[in-house]
Simulated assay, not measured.
Amino acid sequence: MLEDTTQVALHGALAGLAKRQRVIADNIANINTPGFLAGRVDFEDALRLAVQAGEPADADITTARSLEPTREDGNNVNLDHEVLSNIDTGLRYQTMLRATDDKFGLLRAVIRG
Rank of each mutant, 00 (worst) to 15 (best):
T6R: 15
T6V: 14
T6Q: 09
Q7T: 11
A9M: 11
A9W: 13
H11W: 10
H11E: 09
G12L: 02
G12H: 03
A15Q: 13
G16T: 01
L17W: 09
R20Y: 10
Q21M: 14
Q21W: 14
R22P: 06
I24S: 03
I24A: 05
N27R: 07
I28Q: 04
A29S: 15
A29L: 14
N32Q: 15
N32R: 15
N32T: 15
T33Q: 04
T33N: 06
P34M: 06
G35E: 01
F36A: 14
F36Y: 15
F36E: 05
L37G: 11
F43V: 09
E44D: 09
E44H: 02
E44F: 03
L47A: 08
L47T: 01
L47C: 05
L49V: 06
A50S: 12
A50F: 03
A50E: 07
A53G: 10
G54V: 05
G54F: 06
E55N: 14
E55F: 11
P56I: 06
D58C: 02
D60I: 05
D60N: 13
D60P: 02
D60C: 04
I61N: 01
I61K: 07
T62V: 14
T63Q: 15
R65L: 11
S66V: 00
S66L: 06
L67Y: 03
E68F: 03
E68N: 11
E68H: 05
T70K: 07
G74P: 03
G74T: 10
N75Y: 03
N75G: 09
N75W: 00
N76V: 09
N76M: 04
N76Y: 02
N76F: 04
V77C: 08
N78Q: 13
N78C: 10
L79D: 01
L79E: 02
H81I: 12
H81K: 13
V83F: 12
I87V: 15
I87N: 00
I87W: 08
L91H: 05
L91A: 06
R92T: 02
Y93I: 06
Q94C: 01
Q94I: 09
Q94M: 14
Q94F: 00
T95D: 01
L97Y: 05
R98K: 12
A99L: 04
A99K: 00
A99C: 00
D101Y: 06
D102T: 04
K103H: 04
K103F: 00
K103S: 11
F104A: 10
L106P: 02
L106T: 10
L107D: 03
L107Y: 01
R108T: 11
V110W: 00
I111P: 09
I111E: 10
R112A: 14
R112P: 02
R112S: 11
G113L: 05
G113K: 02
